[in-house]
């Protein structure tokens, strides 16, 4: 019997992997960035299927709303014919594909050998109320630190762009 959840899972998995492959193999990098956005969206769909709607909405807001748009902006800002080239020998591609296949096969073998996964059953989904309790409780110092890290990242990005403009006439 085919469940609606199975179809949704297969569709989302296809979007995730297809988007990732097209992000790397599209001739134009702009199309690659759009494929990457599709891949992010598929990951958010997987989060929904895993009963984590809060994280899924966060994923859509931050990744598709901010990171993908930032990447598209950068791609269009530095868009010129010379940097679009993607010189790739067939030997390099073969080595890369072999590495990926060996890695994926070793992961799959490890999953198949694990006893933990076979006993895993879906219980009641964890409530997102728990996220707030974790963030306000034991993760409060990490949250403060994260705010500092984000501030440092923004300041660093601004400084990088500013210094370059000054020493180039």
């Amino acid at each position: 019997m085919v469940d609606i959840n199975d179809i949704a899972f297969l569709g989302m998995a296809a979007v995730v992997i297809g988007g990732a492959i097209s992000a790397l193999e599209a001739k134009e990098i702009v199309y690659g960035a759009i494929g990457l956005a599709f891949s992010f969206f598929g990951v958010a769909g997987l989060f929904f299927l895993l009963d984590s709607p809060f994280v899924a909405v966060f994923q859509i807001t931050v990744y598709i709303g901010a990171v993908a748009v930032l990447i598209l902006f950068t791609v269009m800002l530095v868009r010129e014919g010379r940097w679009m080239r993607d010189s790739l020998g067939s030997l390099e591609r073969l080595v890369g594909i072999l590495t990926a296949v060996v890695l994926a096969a070793s992961f799959a073998l490890a999953f198949a050998a694990s006893d933990l996964l076979k006993s895993a059953e879906q219980s009641t989904p964890p409530s997102f109320v728990g996220i707030g309790q974790f963030i306000a409780g034991p993760f409060a110092p990490a949250l403060e630190l994260l705010a500092l890290v984000l501030a440092a990242a923004i300041l660093g990005a601004m400084m990088l762009a500013k210094v370059e403009r000054k020493d180039r006439p």
Binding site: I17, A20, L24, V95, A100, L103, A104, F107, A108
Partner: peptide, 23 residues
Amino acid sequence: LFVSAALFAVGVYGLVTKRNAMR
């Protein structure tokens, strides 16, 4: 986990082969 491993493998393929910073 299989979907995640496949996505990871695609990412490693990109890191190994691509020379373009955006990729």
